[in-house]
Structures are given as structure tokens and as C-alpha cells.
């Protein structure tokens, strides 16, 4: 099923994300990597320093839908492409992979590329290639 190409909204939303990561570094000196911030709130070894700011950042993310809804009167559109065991497997791989690889789309993608980090360029190239290959198999080569 097709979705509408939204260059203007996507560029504007992207700029807001860029502003957010600069704000977090400029005020707290932290990289806005979602997987890192979330993982440091989880066992084992919950990090003490920065725990409250990490929790506040996550709370801000969770408030996005209600605040956006209050401001615009709209619930963001979302169509699921996976369900059941496949959705659970996807979540496991995303969580495990992001922590093992030290970052996700935000930490390596947005922040890492903006720091011109070689590690992040490699990681972003690999997860992009793996994701394109997965969708190719899923949608065009007979699925799983």
C-alpha cells in the first residue's frame, strides 16, 4: 500500500529532531540516542547519574502524541505492517541490536552522522542495508 511522499513535513519534522539533539547536548552534554537513553534506565546496572534527565527525555517522547493531539486535534496516522510473533521478533531484534551496536537511527543515524563519526557512518550503512534487504525479501522474494 502506498503512502504519500511528504518532503516538506518530513524536512520540517527532521529539523525539529535536529533541534532536539542540539538542545540535549547544549544543556546536558548528552547524545540524544533513544536506545542508549532507554537502555540506561533498564537493568542490569541502572545508571545513577543522569537517571532523572533520561527518564524526563523518555517522558517527553511519550507526551508527544497527547501534546500534538491537543495542539492539532489529530491523532498521527499509523498502519502496522507486522503483527503477532513477527512483531515481537522485530522488537527483540531492534532492542538487542541497538544496544549491542551502541546506537540506533537517532544515536548513529542523526547524532553520529552529524558528528562525522566513522563508527556511526559504518553502523548506519549496515543497518540501512540490512533493513532494505529485509524488506526486499519480505515483499518481493516470497516473504518468510
Amino acid at each position: 500500500m502506498e503512502t504519500t511522499f511528504t518532503p516538506v513535513q518530513s524536512l520540517a519534522g527532521g529539523a525539529m529532531i535536529g533541534l532536539s539533539v542540539v538542545l540535549l547536548m547544549g544543556t546536558l552534554g548528552r547524545i540524544a540516542g533513544i536506545s542508549g537513553i532507554v537502555a540506561r534506565l533498564l537493568p542490569p546496572g541502572v545508571e545513577r547519574g543522569g537517571r532523572w534527565t533520561g527518564a524526563a527525555f523518555v517522558l517527553g517522547l511519550l507526551l508527544a502524541v497527547p501534546v500534538h493531539g491537543w495542539a492539532s486535534g489529530a491523532v498521527p496516522a499509523g498502519t502496522m505492517v507486522a503483527a503477532g510473533p513477527l512483531l515481537a521478533l522485530s522488537g527483540l531484534l531492534v532492542g538487542f541490536g541497538a544496544v549491542t551496536g551502541n546506537g540506533c537511527t537517532s544515536g548513529h543515524g542523526v547524532c553520529g552522522l552529524s558528528r562525522l563519526s566513522g563508527r556511526s557512518v559504518v553502523a548506519t550503512g549496515i543497518f540501512m542495508a540490512a533493513a532494505f534487504a529485509t524488506v526486499l525479501v519480505l515483499r518481493h522474494l516470497g516473504g518468510m
Binding site: 511519550l62 507486522a82 559504518v122
Partner: peptide, 27 residues
């Protein structure tokens, strides 16, 4: 780094969700 990124990419492709959007869309 390589293995983690590959696992992450496969998971991301399977459901179209990564950590930030997932936490937001959970609502």
C-alpha cells in the same frame, strides 16, 4: 558494532519501527 547494526536493521525492516517512533506510537 557490525552484528548489532545488522540485527537492528533486520528488526527495523520487519515492522518499520525503531526505538524513538515506537515509544511515540505506543500512545
Amino acid at each position: 558494532l557490525i552484528g548489532g547494526a545488522a540485527a537492528f536493521g533486520i528488526g527495523w525492516g520487519l515492522a518499520g519501527l525503531c526505538p524513538g517512533p515506537a515509544l511515540v506510537a505506543a500512545l
